[in-house]
C-alpha cells in the first residue's frame, strides 16, 4: 500500500444516537460558551478553567457516540442488514469500553501534547510573552479540546496521517472541518483586539476563544455537509 495514500473522509456511525448527538453537539458547544460568556469576560482564568471539563466531556461524548475509532473505520461494511443489530447487542459492554478507552487517551493526548504545542503556536502568533500566561495556556487548552480529540480518536497516531493532516492533504470531513474551522475561527478572532472600542470583551483571550468555538461549529457543519470530501488546493 502506498504510504502516501490519503485517508478517506470519515463517516459518522450510522446509528440514530450518533446522528442525534452529532447534530446536538454544535448547539451544546455554543450554548455552554454563551452561558459562561459573561463570566469569561469578567474574569477569564477561572471561567475558562471551569469551562474546560464541560468541553472535554462534550467532545468525548462526540467521539464515543458518533465517530468510528482508529482502525474501526469500515464497521458498517461488515455489519449489514440484520447482522447489524445482532452484532451491536452482542458486543454491548465490550464495545463501550473499546470506545471509552481511546476517547480517554485522545483527551489525555490533547492535554499533554496538543496543548503545549498550541501554547507555543499562540506565542509565535504574538500572544503576550511575559504576562497573561494562564490566559494563553487556557486558550490553548480550549483550542486543543476543540481541534484534536476527534482527530486522535479517528486517525490514531499514525505519523504519515498526521503529516498529511498538518499539510492539509486530507479530504475534508466533519472532524477535520471542525479542526480547521476552530483554527480559522481563532485567527479571525484576533482581528478585533487592536480596535480602540474600549470594550471589556476585547481583552485577551475572549475574542479568540469565541472565534474558536464559532469556527469549530461552522467548520463542523460546513465540513460535514458542504465540503465533504473536498481537498485544499495548496499551490
Amino acid at each position: 500500500m502506498n504510504p502516501f495514500a490519503t485517508p478517506k473522509p470519515t463517516d459518522l456511525l450510522p446509528t440514530s444516537t450518533s446522528l442525534l448527538y452529532a447534530n446536538l453537539h454544535p448547539i451544546l458547544l455554543l450554548s455552554i460558551l454563551a452561558f459562561t460568556f459573561p463570566a469569561v469576560v469578567a474574569d477569564p482564568v477561572p471561567a475558562l478553567l471551569g469551562l474546560a471539563p464541560t468541553t472535554a466531556l462534550l467532545q468525548g461524548l462526540y467521539c464515543v457516540l458518533c465517530l468510528p475509532s482508529t482502525g474501526q473505520s469500515p464497521p458498517e461494511e461488515k455489519r449489514k442488514g440484520g447482522e447489524k443489530r445482532k452484532a451491536g447487542k452482542a458486543a454491548g459492554s465490550q464495545d463501550v469500553w473499546a470506545k471509552v478507552v481511546p476517547t480517554f487517551l485522545s483527551l489525555l493526548l490533547t492535554l499533554l501534547l496538543t496543548t503545549p504545542v498550541l501554547t507555543l503556536t499562540l506565542l509565535l502568533f504574538g500572544a503576550p510573552l511575559t504576562t497573561h500566561h494562564p490566559q494563553t495556556l487556557l486558550l490553548a487548552l480550549h483550542l486543543a479540546l476543540l481541534t484534536t480529540p476527534p482527530l486522535y480518536y479517528v486517525h490514531g497516531l499514525t505519523s504519515t496521517t498526521w503529516l498529511q493532516l498538518a499539510s492539509l492533504q486530507v479530504p475534508i470531513d466533519e472532524v477535520y472541518g471542525m479542526t480547521l474551522g476552530a483554527c480559522a475561527g481563532a485567527w479571525v478572532g484576533a482581528v478585533p483586539i487592536p480596535l480602540d472600542w474600549d470594550r471589556e470583551w476585547q481583552k485577551w483571550p475572549v475574542t479568540v476563544l469565541v472565534g474558536c468555538y464559532g469556527g469549530a461549529v461552522v467548520g463542523k457543519v460546513v465540513g460535514g455537509w458542504v465540503f465533504k470530501g473536498a481537498r485544499v488546493k495548496m499551490a
Binding site: 502568533f125 498529511q164 499539510s167 492539509l168 492533504q169
Partner: peptide, 11 residues
C-alpha cells in the same frame, strides 16, 4: 510560517 511548516511536513 505555520502553513509553511505544515506544508513542508507533507512533502
Amino acid at each position: 510560517g505555520v502553513l509553511f511548516l505544515g506544508s513542508s511536513l507533507g512533502q
